[in-house]
């Protein structure tokens, strides 16, 4: 299989990259520092509270940055250096190249996330009183999927642009836009419908984090976190609320797919018709 050969090659190449090891190192150091700051050794609080604060910054910045860093140059760099001429004179299509790159870099991303967060998570795990092993796992799961989404966005951009400089610039712009857009709407006084808010990557992250618990409870129609106010109201009034499928928590799976397929699709559309 073509994409597998490419993914494997890409992995072999990536693990020898100093950038990767530097990223993991910085990750690890910062997140350990943050966990230490937020747990203050008192042993009070819950795992979610401690981890939540610690990882707010991690989730907000480190993962998107690492995801983009690992992916946004992956295709355009091959075009710049000319290694792509070797790759595409083999029986691979450009689509297979994109898929192979996406898979390869996603594996790298997941390894980076695990290597960067696991020590900190374990530290918090032993520091706070109310820590559940399932929560630890769902946290890692949500972080990984979140990272893979950013890799998808980066790969799509990399297929779209013509130079490494363009890749860097569009990467920075996308980073800012994807993080800030709901805040910009809010500041402008425009109220977004709940469904639109669900496309925000951090809402997706929150839904991903809560989803495994809901599935474990067998509650498949539970609403997304964007409906959190309604959920509180429901608990207050003891009235069951029901929302359409697009506002239910499980729908996050579709949104994750959207954020991976859309950028890669746009990138592929351009990359498949362009001259190298």
């Amino acid at each position: 299989m073509s994409w597998q050969a490419i993914a494997k090659k890409d992995l072999q190449d990536s693990i020898r990259s100093r950038t990767l090891w530097a990223t993991i190192g910085i990750f690890l150091a910062l997140i350990l520092l943050l966990s230490w700051l937020f747990t203050d050794g008192s042993g009070e609080g819950t795992f979610i509270a401690a981890a939540g604060f610690t990882f707010l910054i991690g989730v907000l910045f480190f993962i998107p940055m690492a995801g983009l860093l690992l992916s946004v140059k992956s295709i355009v760099r091959e075009r710049n250096t000319g290694t792509i001429n070797l790759l595409l004179s083999l029986p691979h299509t450009r689509g297979e190249m994109i898929v192979g790159k996406f898979v390869g870099r996603s594996v790298v991303m997941v390894v980076t996330v695990l290597a960067g967060f696991l020590p900190a998570l374990l530290y918090i795990f032993v520091q706070v009183d109310e820590a559940g092993f399932t929560q630890l796992l769902t946290f890692l799961f949500a972080l990984s999927v979140f990272g893979v989404m950013w890799v998808g966005i980066g790969i799509g951009l990399s297929a779209l642009v013509n130079s490494e400089t363009q890749a860097t610039i569009t990467g920075v712009v996308m980073f800012a836009v994807l993080i800030l857009w709901p805040l910009i709407f809010e500041q402008a006084g425009i109220e977004l419908p709940s469904f639109a808010q669900r496309f925000w990557l951090f809402v997706i992250f929150a839904d991903l984090f809560f989803l495994p618990g809901r599935i474990a409870d067998g509650d498949f129609t539970f609403p997304s976190v964007v409906e959190f106010d309604e959920v509180l109201l429901e608990e207050l009034n003891d009235v069951a609320i029901s929302v359409g499928p697009h506002l239910q928590m499980w729908f996050v799976v579709v949104l994750v797919a959207f954020w991976i397929i859309l950028p890669i699709g746009i990138g592929y559309y351009r990359f498949s018709t362009t001259d190298l």
């Binding site: 190449d13 020898r16 250096t81 000319g82 290694t83 001429n85 070797l86 691979h92």
Partner: peptide
């Protein structure tokens, strides 16, 4: 491309 061998122009090898 399954049946051809290519030495292209302007290539570079994978450095690492």
């Amino acid at each position: 491309r399954r049946r051809i061998g290519v030495l292209p122009e302007g290539y570079d090898v994978y450095e690492r």
